[in-house]
Write a protein that binds this DNA or RNA. Structure first.
Lengths: 336, 336
DNA sequence: TTGAAAGCGCTAACAC
DNA sequence: GTGTTAGCGCTTTCAA
């Protein structure tokens, strides 16, 4: 049977409180006592009952990861990093998928936070830019950490990857290959990443004094289908690009499809870059030059930040910024 | 503040036990009482504290989804279905990723089940064919439902999709297009699905009296890279196939890559089919003819089965089998 | 530095 | 049909 704190106490010949002190690393316990308790804990293979702990104390040691994101590999990497770190720190992670376009979103979330007990929230974009959600968490005094927010006014801590810088670099890379007619397919306007990536693109173009023709800027939605539409426009209009920066890999894959249908050789006659290093970027031919965000590390760090925030212990910067990595593959080549 | 059962009791002017009876739908409460309690519950927006409930009762209302699977879209669909159904039935779902190749797998799982409280496990393949895990759960008397097991001897309930039938159908489809030199790239031998899909292929070939040349049967690993290796062999050896059945979409995508490099036109000169309806099957050109498993429904059903199993209430079949759907896209065409 | 006792919110057991 | 009481395993007073 499962051992309880009482079992440990009687085996060690001390009071339950002393056991509690030892397992919680509280001060004021003599080393001799600690040894006795630790031995008993080991012998009985004792672990605290998290339910009882949560019921008694004011914290449940449950962290909630709230997301609304159609990118499975992104979400899974986020989950894995967050679970890893949470477990390391003695927390459980509750996974909470939701749909940011759902009308009842706020009500759903409210029902969850009012009637279960989580110590904190991890909010991914685009949810972390939703003012109603933020207001709700603030109202209920629930600590949260935002992952990749676009708006950064709020005083809560956040973690992000330097999307603008990465977009700048990948655009510079295309320019370094000799391209000047570089089109961009933007992402969904609700996502902060969309704007940051566009800014990085613009900065690189401006810095190199390359004029950005409006006709080379297309509004996508981050979906494969939107990528197809934009690619078809770009490759049939008067001003045709020699390189296309798609704001994610799904849309970049769509460019490859349209190019194949039009018998445009990639990368010989058209260079294409994506963003995210999604599985498809490796599963397609030519494989995509793209940008890899350190999602796993971001998630781990966000959990650490959240726990610090919950414990109000150490001082921590409000912002943590992670650098992305360019991944050079086969969809780009020097301009002929 | 959060309301408790006591608040409800005093507002309704009844005892806590009566409130407990009402919120748990127990019998022997007069309608008038029920009304009073329900009104108070609504007014206070009361919800049970799951921690207290779990601590007191012998069940925690936590179900654990244990998986070890490199396919993000599969895992996420599974999660979503399971979460949906669990929440509907008043359970929480704990997500537990693990690595089936990890040496300490059993110890890790044992540490989890010994010292936290879950009412039941959902086991996906290949974990559900791991005898050590099954023995561990049996030893601890934890109910579990297996998802897509290969070995079906164990008496615990399981849910699966009819992989053999789907593989049979997609092979028949290729045959119906006039193909006879149909190669198969098998999946990782540790996965039950690998064998079922191979069986379905063999059955279709045998039924149509088509001899299966060993040279057309390649051992893959479900990875893109293994698909590349097999495709290169198939397309360079003496006996070249006119159609290839890859046991999943990743490997099918790899076939497309190798074919592109060898300037083999798909589907005109080579038909390719995959399995799983993974995102890549839509993000690649030509898009893949493949098989869609009803993963979401399988997950929901598995949760229902698990809850019934936990409650030992209704009789339920040990096996639930779901049919897959052929998805016809652009990677297949009649043999020239 | 240590321990006894109370109680978190709920449900099971038992009384009425 | 309804209420009282005990106690799940733990941590938090507060006293020693």
């Amino acid at each position: 049977m499962k051992s309880t704190i009482k079992d440990v106490a009687s085996l060690a010949g001390v009071s339950v409180k002393t056991v509690s002190r030892v397992i919680n690393n509280e001060p004021n316990v003599r080393p001799a006592m600690q040894d006795k308790v630790n031995k008993a804990v080991a012998e009985l293979n004792f672990k605290r009952n998290p339910l009882a702990r949560g019921l008694r104390g004011q914290n449940s040691f449950i962290l909630t990861l709230l997301y609304s994101n159609p990118n499975p590999s992104y979400v899974l990497e986020l989950q894995n990093g967050a679970i890893e770190q949470a477990n390391n720190d003695g927390y459980n992670l509750q996974i909470l998928p939701c749909d940011h376009t759902n009308e009842n979103l706020i009500d759903n979330i409210e029902s969850i936070i009012t009637h279960s007990s989580q110590d904190g929230f991890l909010l991914t974009h685009p949810l972390c830019d939703n003012e109603d959600i933020i207001a709700l968490l603030d109202k209920n005094n629930i600590p949260f950490v935002r992952i990749s927010p676009f708006h950064q006014e709020h005083s809560s801590p956040y973690v992000l990857s330097d999307d603008k810088q990465a977009a700048y670099e990948i655009t510079k890379y295309l320019i370094s290959l000799g391209h000047t007619d570089i089109a961009i397919i933007k992402g969904h306007p609700d996502f902060g990443a969309t704007h940051k990536r566009y800014e990085g693109y613009l900065e690189a173009m401006n810095e190199m004094n390359i004029n950005v023709d409006d006709a080379l800027v297309k509004q996508g939605q981050f979906t494969f289908e939107s990528g197809e539409v934009c690619a078809r426009q770009l490759l049939t209009q008067d001003h045709k690009p020699s390189a296309i920066f798609a704001s994610n890999d799904y849309m970049a894959a769509a460019v490859l499809k349209i190019a194949a249908q039009m018998h445009i050789n990639i990368p010989a006659n058209l260079s294409v870059v994506g963003y995210d290093d999604a599985p498809v970027s490796r599963q397609i031919w030519p494989s995509l030059t793209t940008v890899k965000q350190p999602i796993y590390d971001i998630a781990k760090h966000a959990v650490q930040k959240l726990i610090r925030h919950i414990k109000k212990q150490e001082f921590d910067d409000v912002q943590s910024k992670f650098q992305c990595k360019l991944v050079l593959r086969n969809s780009t080549s020097p301009k002929l």
